[in-house]
């Protein structure tokens, strides 16, 4: 099928993309601005990236964010995989519908509600708010995304492969680790990357559940912007966009390639 480009469709496409991405492009462009004034172009420079690296508060926040991302994505991977496997493999057990509803609810839950309810929970449990409360909060909604990805991958997974492995003498547990996991590994990697990305750019839930010493990068940016936008913020935002884009693209590519990467694994 040929894509029929006409002036009208090209215009519609341009407007659509401009609406979506022009603000981001502007931000990226102004991160290379020589001038201190955000809205006036003063020539190309990388100095705000230098400033960004020298800004201790910003760097601390970035480090916290990355650590929370790593921890919550990994926890979400384990929990989400278990939930996904349960939903894909056990098609009938009492309370399955309720369980599936509960697993997927965080996908549609307004972030404010998620954040507020988690805050109430942490307060009533008398947990000191900080790094771990944010990590737990991020795990809760990220595992829902992992569960969706793992479940949909397992639905196309041929269960005969597991039977074949057991038939050849592998115990059910071993079969899961040497057959099922490797075959669905691409889905697991993309699930992890998605969870990491979600954690990286979350502002609302983090603001509700954080405490002293655990300010994440989005929170830091948000609070600095209230004092006025500096090109430094543009620079750090550009880096953040870069990471998120990279994560999403990698996740998509891995999902698409599935196990077609065959040839090069064994030399």
């Amino acid at each position: 099928m040929k894509a029929g480009f006409t002036p009208a469709t090209v215009l519609a496409l341009t407007c659509g993309f401009a609406f979506l991405y022009l603000p981001i492009l502007l931000l990226v462009a102004f991160s290379f601005n020589e001038s201190r004034l955000v809205t006036v172009w003063g020539g190309f420079s990388l100095k705000w990236y230098g400033e960004m690296l020298r800004n201790r508060q910003l760097m601390d926040a970035a480090w916290v964010t990355v650590r929370i991302g790593l921890v919550s994505a990994s926890l979400a991977l384990v929990l989400g995989t278990l939930a996904g496997v349960t939903l894909a493999r056990f098609t009938r057990f009492p309370g399955r519908t309720v369980f599936s509803g509960l697993v997927f609810a965080p996908l549609v839950m307004p972030e404010v509600i998620t954040g507020l309810s988690l805050l109430l929970l942490f307060v009533s449990l008398d947990w000191a708010r900080g790094f771990w409360t944010v990590a737990v909060a991020h795990t809760t909604f990220a595992s829902a995304y992992v569960a969706v990805i793992v479940q949909s991958r397992l639905l196309t997974f041929d269960i005969i492969l597991e039977e074949a492995a057991m038939d050849l003498g592998a115990s059910p547990l071993k079969t899961f680790f040497v057959i099922t996991l490797p075959v669905i590994a691409p889905a697991l990697v993309s699930g992890w990357l998605l969870a990491f990305t979600l954690s990286l750019d979350d502002l609302v839930v983090a603001s509700f559940t954080t405490g002293p010493g655990a300010t994440t990068l989005p929170m830091r940016i948000y609070s600095q912007v209230r004092l006025g936008v500096t090109p430094e913020i543009n620079a750090v935002s550009t880096v953040l966009i870069g990471f998120v884009t990279l994560g999403v693209i990698t996740a998509t590519l891995i999902q698409k390639r599935r196990f077609a990467d065959g040839q090069k694994r064994k030399a």
């Binding site: 039977e163 079969t175 075959v183």
Partner: peptide
């Protein structure tokens, strides 16, 4: 199944893709 002295050849072959 994994303790039976029996092996099976499956209709779809069920070769491990990885």
């Amino acid at each position: 199944p994994h303790r039976r002295p029996v092996n099976m050849m499956f209709q779809s072959y069920a070769l491990f893709p990885h």
